[in-house]
Design a protein around this nucleic acid. Sequence first.
DNA 1: CTTGACCCTCACGTAGACGTCAGGTTTTAG
DNA 2: CTAAAACCTGACGTCTACGTGAGGGTCAAG
Lengths: 122, 122
Amino acid sequence: MRIGELSARAGVSVRALRYYEEQDLLTSTRSGSGQRHYTESAVERVVFLQRMYAAGLSSRTIAELLPCVESPSEETSDAALARMAEERDRLSAHIADLIRTRDSLDALMAVNRAHRETLRTA
Amino acid sequence: MRIGELSARAGVSVRALRYYEEQDLLTSTRSGSGQRHYTESAVERVVFLQRMYAAGLSSRTIAELLPCVESPSEETSDAALARMAEERDRLSAHIADLIRTRDSLDALMAVNRAHRETLRTA
DNA sequence: CTTGACCCTCACGTAGACGTCAGGTTTTAG
DNA sequence: CTAAAACCTGACGTCTACGTGAGGGTCAAG
């Protein structure tokens, strides 16, 4: 498929796809005229990239994890696997932090609601 | 206390504190010579701001929530409370998304580890 | 009274993931 | 065959939460 279709199917802009390629996160074959062509698997690759970005990883970090994604059937480098474990832990800590934040928001809302109740029944 | 002490106690840069004030997220009284002075409560205010930033909220959004934080003892505007609930839900969705991402990372690591085991015992 | 640590206000610099416009080629529908 | 739609390569613009000097007051210590 061409870049427009991939863009539509993966839900990201054409510009973003070119950017991913520039960052060595996505590859494409080129037609004689220079247009990019992608395989079906590119869709899930892009979805994966989106996930990683959402998890707060940078392009460079994602690139370091790619060996684990691209060739789970080959010998993946220790470094890549270790990096993945590291990012997983960082993500886990971040999740815990966000949950604490959500709890404090809940507490704040409860206080405000309670006070309103007080005002209403006064 | 002056800005340097608040900076040290809250663990953020002096520049960040001035920026918060510029964004109407933090107030200070000024001495005759123009230096900022803060009360003890400023420390927890700054910690709260850090939490919100970590949760992905922008300065503008945080400012919209502040009425709920500043005056839980006054009549908080419906808008602010609604905005808070909205952000809480957004945060909740984001957390769920991150957990899914973590799960997929775990799965990826498991596959890689399993394959290594296969290679080792082959 | 001077030195050094701390504070002030501009105001430009930064990084990351794209958005967007320019200027030109290619593909597709009719 | 032609016009619109889609694609290409630069390359500058954008937004956010600060970093980083520049140039200059202020305050406690000696």
